[in-house]
């Protein structure tokens, strides 16, 4: 899932301080799961903002809501009849949600309340790690199910680089070496011969290098 972290309060204050009426809008999707932008975080942030502006002697109207998803129009449309009551929206959705909200309400300033960080997993509550960079053509079949693009610091497709030490990455000794993980996994699977066939230079057109990406599923269109 998409992982995000709340922006520092000072940064959020800097973005919204000029608006008297602000709607803080959460998303019940990924950012709720990683506890960065769901209704709970909306309430905490709205309370902090109210407190701050009241202490500054300029209280504001700061309201709270959360949408099922901010990456689907039908849920964004639910704001339609109340959005004019606000001067700005602070969205706690991922970057996709913030943009889609702004796309729908073109004259309303929409600000991001979280930093969208990566596609990752929950190692344990409150600890998330990156697993995928959405390269658009998955090569996990060749790498024992461990992604070198997301999990090797150098994004090497034919690792290891030679700098790994006791299973840790030379770039950051706190971090497991992605290629050590690939090696261990291929060994456990009895597929070490994969190392004998180097991966050819990757086609990055399916990643960001081919421009903005789009999926059209004719079978799903109505």
């Amino acid at each position: 899932m998409i992982r995000a972290v709340g922006k520092p309060l000072e940064e959020v204050i800097g973005m919204v301080q000029d608006y008297p009426r602000i709607l803080v809008a959460g998303c019940d999707g990924c950012v709720t799961v990683c506890e960065a932008g769901g209704l709970k975080e909306v309430k905490v942030l709205a309370a902090a903002l109210r407190l701050y502006f009241t202490q500054q002697g300029e209280p504001k109207q700061i309201d709270e809501t959360s949408l099922t998803r901010q990456c689907d129009k039908e849920y964004l449309a639910q704001l339609g009849d109340r959005i004019d009551g606000y001067d700005a929206v602070l969205s706690l959705a991922c970057g996709c949600g913030v943009q889609f909200l702004a796309d729908m309400y073109t004259t309303k300033p929409v600000y991001p309340g979280v930093d969208t960080t990566f596609l990752g997993v929950t190692e344990e509550r409150g600890v998330y790690t990156e697993r995928c960079q959405a390269c658009g053509r998955c090569i996990l079949a060749d790498t024992g199910g461990v992604c070198p693009i997301a999990r090797c610091s150098k994004r090497m497709l034919n690792g290891p680089c030679g700098g790994s030490d006791k299973g840790k990455c030379e770039v950051n000794p706190e971090m497991p070496c992605g290629w050590q993980l690939i090696y261990e996994r291929l060994k456990a699977l009895g597929q070490l011969d994969r190392f004998e066939q180097p991966i050819t230079p990757k086609d990055w057109t399916t990643s960001r290098d081919g421009g903005v990406r789009k999926i059209v599923r004719e079978d799903l269109r109505v």
Partner: peptide, 13 residues
């Protein structure tokens, strides 16, 4: 020019 216009269009910019 964008990499996709050239002769190594699968490269990373």
């Amino acid at each position: 020019d964008d990499i996709t216009f050239g002769d190594h269009h699968t490269a990373k910019a």
